[in-house]
Design a protein around this nucleic acid. Structure first.
Lengths: 193, 193
DNA sequence: CGCGACGTTGATTTGCCTCAACGATTGTGG
DNA sequence: CCACAATCGTTGAGGCAAATCAACGTCGCG
């Protein structure tokens, strides 16, 4: 059940009674996405956050030379948004789309703020969620700067065993901060063992 | 006044009445640090978070080859900790020390949890704090991967105008993810304009 | 004063990029 | 359903940004 997935995710950090669950579920918008469908486009103002029920999304930016940079993947049971646009209500610097057919819950900012008012425990939930994300971000920064590409790819495989074969190699290369050609060479090098 | 600094920082996102302020101030531990003094050492379990009143701290890790990697600087009016160790109560992978004489407030985890219980608004404060930090972390990842070192250094100067001349160059190089020699070359190249 | 940490500079090396060409696979319109 | 285009992954040649190594001048400090 889709609703159970998100309740379970939240229950990792806070506990909700029946009424709170019901209220929270009432603000969710279920969305089914085709492969390639866009959830948030560069330049739009992000008015919502997403929870991934199934499938896999990506968050990427485009630099001055038109090159894509994958900032994050979000698979089953992850949260994703363009936080900066969401917070400041300025045009998004990123685009979010579906790499494979996916299902998400959308939560509008307006509703989210009401949730925070009505069930302050949710402040705690997101405090912990962001806190944990910070740890991962720092890990990633450390990695990009100190670990050679081949190692980073191996770590990636362990971290995303479900997707590393199903999505285009170039997105993985972009996420790792290397060119698709070079990742291809790494792959064939690893295969020779 | 030291206490005013931190209250002002918190008041950016939530408002506190006199009693709440008093209670919060009562759990702070003021610490004066000499240059080079260590706040958290690799391998210890982090039991607190810090707010920097004055001076400048750094958070760094050491890789298998013994090389230091500066993950973050924290100057006046910033928060710093080893979040992972703090959350999971496992040995820290990072070390935090003072680059120049500094003053901080320490908040013990135990007290922090009581604050969250007694003044739930603080959940909100830290939720927003981490949310904003996430945005910065993502920016940094994007930068490291898509912007050449010289540009990154120029951005750094703008971001940390107070410290970029006062602290050893090698720490800045480490933060930027380049070698000290290369940063030195960048500096002299910039000077030639 | 002399020692150690630091910043600079040059020579050489390397990890990764760019460009280009080529099969393989996927997708699409007629 | 096929034909053709587009996208994708692979491989090789050549180039560049940044690392490494080494030598040297400088400064703060015991």
């Amino acid at each position: 059940m889709k609703e159970e997935t998100i309740i379970k995710n939240i229950s990792k950090h806070i506990s909700l009674d029946e009424e709170e669950k019901k209220y929270f579920l009432s603000i969710l918008h279920y969305k089914k996405l085709e492969k390639g469908e866009i959830l948030l486009k560069y330049g739009e103002i992000s008015k919502s956050q997403f929870f991934v029920i199934d499938g896999c999304l990506r968050n990427y930016s485009i630099d001055e030379q038109g090159k894509e940079h994958v900032i994050a993947f979000a698979c089953k049971d992850w949260w994703i948004s363009d936080l900066y646009s969401y917070i400041t209500e300025t045009p998004a610097e990123h685009t979010i789309d579906a790499l494979v057919p996916a299902e998400v819950f959308e939560i509008m900012k307006w509703d989210m703020e009401k949730v925070f008012e009505r069930i302050p425990k949710f402040e705690r939930f997101f405090r912990i969620l962001f806190q944990n994300s910070m740890v991962n971000q720092m890990r990633r920064i450390r990695q990009v700067m100190s670990v050679p590409a081949e190692e980073r790819y191996k770590v990636f495989i362990k971290q995303y065993p479900d997707i590393y074969l199903n999505i285009p190699l170039k997105h993985i290369a972009s996420y790792l901060g290397i060119s698709p050609e070079f990742l291809s060479k790494i792959r064939s090098k690893i295969a020779h063992d």
